[in-house]
Write a protein that binds this DNA or RNA. Structure first.
Lengths: 338, 338
DNA sequence: TTGTAGGCGTTATCAA
DNA sequence: TTGATAACGCCTACAA
C-alpha cells in the first residue's frame, strides 16, 4: 500500500495534525519537528493523496483543455504546440492538465464540460477554436468557472484571454499581394462558425476593398483546415477557368495542401501562383518553397493564457484581462519572396 | 454551490444510499424509484464529485501521459496524433487523461512520476520514447502501477505494449535504396539512448551489410529529430567532399529539414539525392517532392495501447500482452518514386 | 426495497 | 507547540 499521513505520524509518534502542518510549512511547528517530519516523510516516500486533498480543499490543482478533433486521427501542429505551452506553464506551478478530445459542438463535448465542471474535476478551463456564438463560454460564465479563451465570441461581453488580430494580419497580407501586382486573389477559408474564420475572411475582404478590387465569390472557398482539405479545394481553384494568381489560406496546413495541388497541376508556387498561410508553425519554413505566413506565437500564447487562468483561479489581480497580439507577416518564396 | 447527492436525496425525501444505488444501476431499487431519481438528478444537474468518488473507490479513472519535450516550444505531429489517439479511446471508456510535459530523464520527469503514482492521481501510465535503460519502466514495475509502453527497453523483462519493428523497416528501406543503385547511403539518427534510435541505426547497418556495403562512419550523423536539426546535419552531409546519394532519416521531421537543406544547396531531392523518413505523418505526403517514409499507424497504435492499459487496470485478461507492428514502406518521389 | 453508519486521507477548527 | 475531532462527498456492508 502507499504510505499515508497516518503512517508517517505513527512512525514518529506524532499526531497527523502536526505532520500535516509541518509539511505544509505552517509556522506554528517547532523547527526541529518540522525537519524531522520532512525527512521521515521523504524517506517513507509519502506523497499526499490528491483525491483526499481535493475533497477537503475543494480544489483540484488541475486545469482542463479539450482538443477540438474535427475527425478521428486528425492532427495539427498548432495543437501540439498549444498543449506543450499549457503544460509547461502549468507544470511550473504544480498544476496538472486534463486533456480530452471531442468534435466541436458535439454531445461528447457537452458531456465533458458537464463532467469536468459539475463533477469538480478541474479548477478552470482553457478554450480555443472559439465559435461565433459559443455555448461553452456562456456555460462557463453562468457556472462561474474560471476560464480563459484564445479568441473571443461575439455573444459574450466579458472576455478574459488573448486575441490574435487575424483581421489586420490577413488584410496586411492581401495588401502585400496587391502591391506585388496580384488582382486575382483567392481565399480558402474554414468552418464559417469559427471566430478566426470570420475574422480572416473579413480581413481578406477588407484588403481587397482597400485596393479597390471587387470581390469575386467564385474565388472564395471553404476547407476543413487540413492539408487534404486545402489540396482538394485548391485543385478546383487552380483548374478553374479564371485561375487566381494568388491564394490566401486560413492556416498553414491548408496552404501546404494548396502548394501540393499547385505542383500537381504542373505549376510552380511562388512563380505561377502565390500561396500564403497563417500560423507560422515550424514546418512552414521547411516547405518547398518556404511558405509565406502570418506567424502567431502559439507556444507563448498558450503559456500566457495558462498564466492568466491560474491567476483567475487564485483570485489574483490580472495585469491585463485582454491581451491582443498581432501576427507577424513573414514573407517567403511561396509568394515570390521579398 | 454544486449539487451533491445529499441535495438530491433531500429533494426526494430519500436516503443518499438509495439515490446512489439508483444512479449506479443496482437492481435492488424499485423501478419507479430509479426513474424518479434519475430524472430528478438530471434536472438538478447532479454529477458525482470525482474526488469523493476516487477517495472512496480508490481509483481515479484517469491515465497519465508525459509529453517528452526536448526543448521548450518543441513539437512533433507524432505527439499530437498520439495524444488524440489516447484521449479518443479513453473518452470512450469514460476515462480522463492527465498530460504533462517534461524533458526526458529530467528531474521534472521524476517528480511527475512521484506525484502521479504515489499521490494516486492516475490509475495507470502510458510511456513512449522509451530509453534503452529506462528507469520509468522499472519504477512502474516496482510500484506495481499498471503501465504500457510503445517500444520496450532492453533492461526490462516483462513488457506489455506495442513495438513497431523499426529495425526491419529501415533495413527494407535501405535494401530498396540499394536496389535503385545507391551505394553512398547516409543516415541521420537521433539521441543514442532512445530505443528507436538504436533499432533504426541497427536496421540501417543491417541493410548495408546485407548489400555488402562497408559502413562508413562519416555518413552516420546524429540529430535531435527536429526539422531544424535535420536541416543542419544534412547540410554538412551535402556539402562534404564525399556527398551521399541518399539520406535515411530517423523521422519525418528530420527528413523534411534534410530536404530543405538539399534544396538550399542547389540540388534536387529525389534526383540528385534521395531522402527518406520514418513516421508517415500527414505532412509527409504533402512535402515537395512527396516524402518516402515508413508509415506507422500512430493514431491506432495509441488507441490500442490505451485499450491495453485499460484492460490492465480493470484486471481483465489481455488478448495479447505484446503486439508487434510492421511499419509500411511508402515510396514516393523523394527517393525517385516508384 | 430502503435506511443507517462507517470510513476513504486530508485539512482546518478548536481546545489543551 | 501539539492533539483530538469534524468535515469534504461518496460508496457499501449491514440492518431494518
Amino acid at each position: 500500500m502507499t504510505t499515508t499521513i497516518r503512517n508517517v505520524a505513527k512512525q514518529l509518534d506524532l499526531s497527523i495534525t502536526t505532520v500535516s502542518r509541518a509539511l505544509d510549512g505552517y509556522d506554528d511547528v517547532a523547527p526541529a519537528t518540522r525537519k524531522l517530519v520532512a525527512r521521515t516523510a521523504r524517506k517513507m516516500g509519502y506523497v499526499p493523496n490528491r483525491a483526499a486533498r481535493q475533497l477537503r480543499r475543494q480544489r483540484t490543482d488541475t486545469i482542463g483543455y479539450i482538443l477540438p478533433t474535427a475527425s478521428t486521427g486528425f492532427t495539427d501542429l498548432f495543437f501540439s504546440e498549444f498543449i506543450a505551452g499549457i503544460s509547461d506553464e502549468a507544470a511550473a506551478r504544480q498544476f496538472d492538465i486534463l486533456v480530452a478530445s471531442a468534435p466541436p459542438d458535439s454531445d461528447t463535448e457537452k458531456e465533458l464540460y458537464e463532467r469536468w465542471v459539475m463533477g469538480g474535476k478541474v479548477d478552470g478551463i482553457i478554450v480555443n477554436r472559439v465559435r461565433l456564438s459559443d455555448w461553452r463560454l456562456n456555460f462557463l460564465s453562468r457556472r462561474q468557472v474560471p476560464h480563459v479563451s484564445l479568441e473571443r465570441s461575439l455573444s459574450k461581453r466579458k472576455f478574459v484571454g488573448i486575441e490574435v488580430d487575424s483581421f489586420s494580419g490577413i488584410r496586411e497580407l492581401v495588401t502585400h499581394l496587391v502591391k506585388r501586382g496580384h488582382r486575382q486573389i483567392a481565399y480558402i477559408g474554414g468552418p464559417t462558425d469559427l471566430k478566426i474564420a470570420h475574422d480572416r475572411l473579413a480581413g481578406y475582404e477588407a484588403g481587397l476593398q482597400q485596393a479597390g478590387i471587387a470581390p469575386n465569390r467564385a474565388l472564395v472557398l471553404q476547407s476543413d483546415m487540413t492539408a487534404e482539405g486545402g489540396y482538394g479545394v485548391a485543385l478546383r481553384l487552380v483548374r478553374s477557368s479564371n485561375r487566381p494568381t494568388a491564394i490566401v489560406c486560413i492556416n498553414d496546413l491548408a496552404a501546404i495542401g494548396a502548394m501540393h495541388a499547385v505542383h500537381d497541376s504542373g505549376l510552380v508556387t511562388g512563380h505561377d501562383i502565390a500561396i500564403a498561410g497563417f500560423d507560422g508553425l515550424a514546418e512552414a519554413a521547411h516547405t518547398q518553397p518556404p511558405l509565406t505566413t502570418l506567424e502567431q506565437p502559439v507556444y507563448s500564447v498558450a503559456r500566457q493564457l495558462t498564466r492568466m487562468l491560474l491567476a483567475l483561479i487564485a483570485h489574483e489581480a490580472l495585469e491585463e484581462e485582454q491581451v491582443f497580439v498581432r501576427p507577424q507577416l513573414i514573407i517567403r518564396a511561396s509568394t515570390g519572396g521579398e
